[in-house]
Amino acid sequence: MPDKPSDLVQGTLDMLILKTLALEPMHGYGISVRIEQISKGVFRMNAGSLFLAIQRLERGGLIDGEWKPTENNRRARYYTLTAKGRKRLDSETREWGRQVAAIARILEAS
């Protein structure tokens, strides 16, 4: 199955969630839809691992959660990036760029 979700590199899920929340506060489903849309269905996550990551980020103080009504009158928890989360996102993005460039250089070297 081509659209079977790929296993995420350890730790990248956190970075993707942070990146998604950098645009606007969002609830869990919104996060997963956004990641799937932008990755064109390469990353599809199940509820367990998504909320596990959200719990980890929230406990680490990188995001804050707040109950709010949704468009269709349900209640959902919306997550916002904290200042600390934004800083972490910046540093992780930089680090990721460095690593990707390095890996690309190695792969192209042959």
Partner: peptide, 17 residues
């Protein structure tokens, strides 16, 4: 209850889609 509600909302939204 909160976890139930959050996960429930998530799955319902997916189903609504």
């Amino acid at each position: 209850r909160e976890l139930n509600e959050e996960l429930g909302a998530y799955l319902e939204m997916a189903a609504a889609e």
